[in-house]
Computed example of a mutant assay.
Amino acid sequence: MAATLFEFLPDRAELPHVDLGTFPTPVQRYDELGATLGVPDLYVKRDGQSGELYGGNKVRKLEFLLGDAKRRNCTTVWTGGGIGSNHVLATCLYARAQSLRPQIVHFPQPVTDHVRENLRAVSTTDPYLKLVSSEPRAAAEAVRLKATRWLHPNPSFYYIPPGGASPVGELGYVNAAFELRRQIDAGELPEPDVIVVAVGSGGTLAGLLVGCRLASIQSELLGVRVSGRLLANSYRIARLANRTADLLAEHGVPDSPSFAAEDVTIVDGYVGDGYGEVTPEARRAKRTAADCGLELDLTYTAKTLAGLRGERNARALDQQTVLYLHTYNETDISARAEAATPSDDLPAAYQRFFAGEPA
């Protein structure tokens, strides 16, 4: 664990945390990729290498969320997402590693090989799974779960919002900003003019807003929207950032920052027809990155890099130092997925997602 946030906090004793990841994640300069994108001064922070069990941006959040669940003596954790959700898979894997049972509300999304691989890996964690018909139905189920938690102050379950987007979860990316400050000070990269990140549930961007302000990083934060506006909008992200800052203030952080929607920059035009729907721009970005040694997924990171390419002229990114925060898991889960037996370990409602595959 990079203890930068903990060093900053006057009152660290009550902050929930479990060590899950491998930090700091490396920062690398990508000259060839930057030249291809038209952003010649490009760096990549490889948060895909954040954990040995599973990587990506969810590990930082789960360190605090699962720590909070254990402090409350919970035995199960509830969360939700699309059937191919990286957040759901990360939660299942790390919850089991902490002796917590994962319980999941899933909604359908376009079925790809990546979605099937994630479902196979999820099936190996013996989760309780509930499949609802749509993302709005999943949101309604989340409201019900939160109401249950409010009515019963000491339930056995712990609710994690989609993407881990809660004030507790965002502490992971407050901490990431302090980690980045340390890397800048060590000369691993210059302070970026712009930091680019995917915006799905909005939690990563919200945590970075708070963390960069506290760590005195002056970079502009640029979020590329890859999901629906219900979650990925500037008003909600500003509110989440303010709630995260309030939580830190409760732990003694002086001059806790506050944010308005105008402080949140979100780039539109790259989500396509909806969450998980593949766009031509994302396919091109994925091929471009692969040629330069960086693997992207078509739901989040490829759309983010497509947004970076599309914004280079509008924001003069070809004249600036840009840091792309790579949030896609880089830990190989193929052996786990191949060993799974989804026909036995997934409910009947899920079997249609494997239709047409060889037995």
Rank of each mutant, 00 (worst) to 15 (best):
D332K: 05
E277V: 15
G293K: 04
Y300P: 07
A339G: 02
D332Q: 13
A282C: 14
I333H: 14
T327L: 15
A260R: 12
V322R: 01
I333C: 15
N329E: 11
T304P: 03
E338N: 07
I266S: 02
L317D: 04
L308E: 00
A290T: 07
R336S: 10
L296H: 06
S334W: 10
A339N: 05
A285R: 02
T321D: 04
Y270L: 08
T288P: 06
T265D: 00
Y300D: 05
V264K: 00
V278K: 12
D291V: 03
I266P: 01
Y270G: 01
E338W: 00
G293S: 01
T331E: 13
L317W: 01
V278F: 05
A289F: 01
R284C: 07
R284E: 14
H326R: 11
E277W: 14
T331Q: 10
N313F: 10
A282V: 11
S334I: 08
D273C: 11
V322K: 03
T265F: 04
E277N: 14
Y300H: 13
A335C: 01
A337D: 15
L325S: 15
A290H: 05
S258E: 15
E311G: 02
V278M: 08
A306K: 04
D297Q: 07
D291Y: 00
N313Y: 06
L298N: 09
L323C: 15
E330V: 06
E338K: 10
T304G: 05
Y275G: 06
Q320M: 01
T321S: 11
D263F: 11
A282L: 13
L298S: 09
K286Y: 08
A306G: 04
N329F: 03
T327N: 13
R284S: 12
A282W: 14
S334K: 11
T301I: 07
V264H: 03
E338M: 04
A339W: 02
Y275H: 13
D291R: 00
R283G: 06
E330H: 12
H326K: 13
A282M: 14
T301V: 08
V278Y: 08
Y324C: 09
Y300G: 08
Y300N: 09
G307P: 08
A314Y: 00
K286F: 05
T327A: 14
E281Q: 15
L317A: 09
G307L: 05
Y328K: 09
T288G: 03
Y328S: 14
A261N: 10
Y324Q: 12
A261I: 09
N313W: 06
N329D: 15
G272E: 08
S258W: 11
C292G: 02
R284I: 05
E262N: 14
A306R: 01
G293E: 00
A337V: 09
E311C: 08
T279F: 06
G293N: 00
T304Y: 02
L323K: 12
G307Y: 01
T299G: 05
D268F: 03
D273S: 14
A340W: 09
R312S: 11
A335S: 10
T331K: 12
T265A: 03
G276K: 13
R309L: 06
G274H: 08
E277P: 01
R284K: 05
T304M: 07
G276E: 12
R283D: 13
V278C: 06
G310R: 01
A337H: 12
I266D: 00
R287Q: 07
N329Y: 03
I266A: 02
L317K: 03
G269F: 01
R309C: 06
A314D: 09
G272C: 07
A340T: 05
